[in-house]
Structures are given as structure tokens and as C-alpha cells.
């Protein structure tokens, strides 16, 4: 098999599965799941909707919300105080996690604190510079904060972010290029056996130089 044929085969092996898997993403047209949205924590019952879909329907990776990364998302936090009377909530945050760290964080506030038994925060979440860099499955955490800065409610959910034209994000393209390069390197690795030095063979002699300057310097040492 020639080099060109090997390279073509490697490229097709990588690109075809990528394109087909990307086209058949599960959950791309998943129906909205009705769920009881209340998760009480710290005396607060809250619910968050992402473009009208409750995030509690996306609590698992398999039921992640499909998100177009080129458009901003309309996120609405609605909260009620249960049992503890009126409270002052000043901030709502949305954090996108990657390797355990917050890759992107957006805050609504802090807004001026006003004591109430219920209320809502509205956020238009824009991925910003991440639009043309990333895609894929991500875990997000929605959090509501009290006026003293402590978290009174939070919920984690998953989104499947899609890039323009399915694959046009910088990171997956870079990863595919690296994969193609390394697969091609493996395909050519057989030649390394002929290049590698054998055990027990003496090292090659140093190159001799006939130049007069080198000879003179050797002689003076």
C-alpha cells in the first residue's frame, strides 16, 4: 500500500465515524420531560428553565438539553421561600464545568437585595468566545445566592452543545488533525525498526574533519 493510500485510509477512518456520530447524536430532538422542578435546599424551592425547558429534565448525560452554541440561551430562575419566611436573594449563577473546574461562569447580579418570599432572575446566557472553540457534552450548575454570598440552592444538569455545521469548532478539528497525524506516524512506524540501533553494536565513529582549523585546535589541547 502506498503512502498516499495509507494516508487516505487513515483520514477516512477518522472522519467518517466522526461525521456519522455527530449526525446521529442522541437527544438532539429529545422531547421535553415534565418533572417536578422543586429541589429544596436552604429553605428555598427553585426551578430553572433553559429556553423554556426545565433543567431538571436534563439531570443525566443521556437526557442532556441540546443547545446551539451560536445562539444565546434564555435562562429563567424562579424561586420560592418555604418555611423560613421572606429572604433576600441577590444573585443567580450558571457555571459550565470541565475537568472539575468552571470553564465559563455567568452571573445575573448581584442585584440590590429586597426581602421577598418569591421571585425570579432572568439571564440571557451567551457562550461568547467558546462558540467557535468547543462543542460536546458539558455539565452545568445553576446556583442561587443569598445576600450574604452563601449558596442557598443549586442544581446540576447537562447540555449537548453543537457547533456550527456540526463540527466547525476549533478543538474537535484540532483533535482530528492530531489523530490523523499520529495514526499516520504509527502506520509508518515499521521503518523505525530499520533505523533503530541494534543492541551491542558499537556507536558510529565521530565524523572526521579535514579542515586545518580543527586540526590546529585539536593539537593545542
Amino acid at each position: 500500500m502506498g503512502r498516499g493510500a495509507t494516508a487516505f485510509l487513515v483520514v477516512m477512518l477518522v472522519l467518517l465515524p466522526s461525521a456519522s456520530f455527530a449526525a446521529s447524536r442522541p437527544g438532539a430532538s429529545a422531547p421535553a420531560v415534565n418533572c417536578s422542578n422543586a429541589q429544596a435546599s436552604g429553605g428555598i424551592v427553585a426551578s430553572v428553565t433553559w429556553n423554556g425547558q426545565n433543567i431538571c429534565s436534563a439531570s443525566g448525560a443521556s437526557s442532556a438539553l441540546s443547545v446551539d452554541f451560536t445562539k444565546s440561551a434564555h435562562v429563567v430562575y424562579t424561586w420560592n421561600s418555604t418555611g423560613n419566611g421572606p429572604v433576600a436573594l441577590t444573585d443567580a449563577r450558571l457555571a459550565m464545568n470541565y475537568f472539575g473546574f468552571a470553564l465559563a461562569t455567568r452571573d445575573v447580579g448581584p442585584v440590590s437585595p429586597s426581602v421577598a418570599t418569591n421571585g425570579s432572575f432572568v439571564m440571557d446566557w451567551d457562550p461568547g468566545a467558546l462558540t467557535y472553540v468547543l462543542e460536546g457534552l458539558y455539565g452545568l450548575t445553576a446556583t442561587v445566592f443569598a445576600s450574604n454570598g452563601s449558596s442557598v440552592w443549586s442544581e446540576s444538569f447537562f447540555v449537548k452543545a453543537t457547533a456550527p455545521y456540526t463540527i466547525l469548532a476549533a478543538l474537535p478539528i484540532l483533535l482530528i488533525v492530531i489523530a490523523v497525524f499520529e495514526l499516520y506516524a504509527v502506520a509508518r512506524s515499521g521503518r523505525q525498526s530499520a533505523i533503530a540501533p541494534k543492541k551491542g553494536t558499537p556507536p558510529p565513529p565521530p565524523p572526521t574533519s579535514d579542515s586545518g582549523a580543527d586540526s590546529a585546535s585539536e593539537g593545542t589541547r
Partner: peptide
């Protein structure tokens, strides 16, 4: 050739894990 393959395989292992996340197979959150 073996060392060459191991080196490329380590890189490919990392690349395929990151690529799998980018293609929505699993989350690395």
C-alpha cells in the same frame, strides 16, 4: 517501532478521550 507506537498511542489515547467528549459520548465535567 514499538517505542514509536507507544508514544503515538499515548497521544492518541488522550486525543480520543477528548474527542469523545467533543462528540457528546460522555462528559468530562
Amino acid at each position: 517501532a514499538t517505542t514509536h507506537g507507544v508514544g503515538a498511542g499515548v497521544v492518541l489515547g488522550i486525543v480520543f478521550v477528548l474527542l469523545g467528549q467533543q462528540l457528546s459520548y460522555y462528559s468530562l465535567s
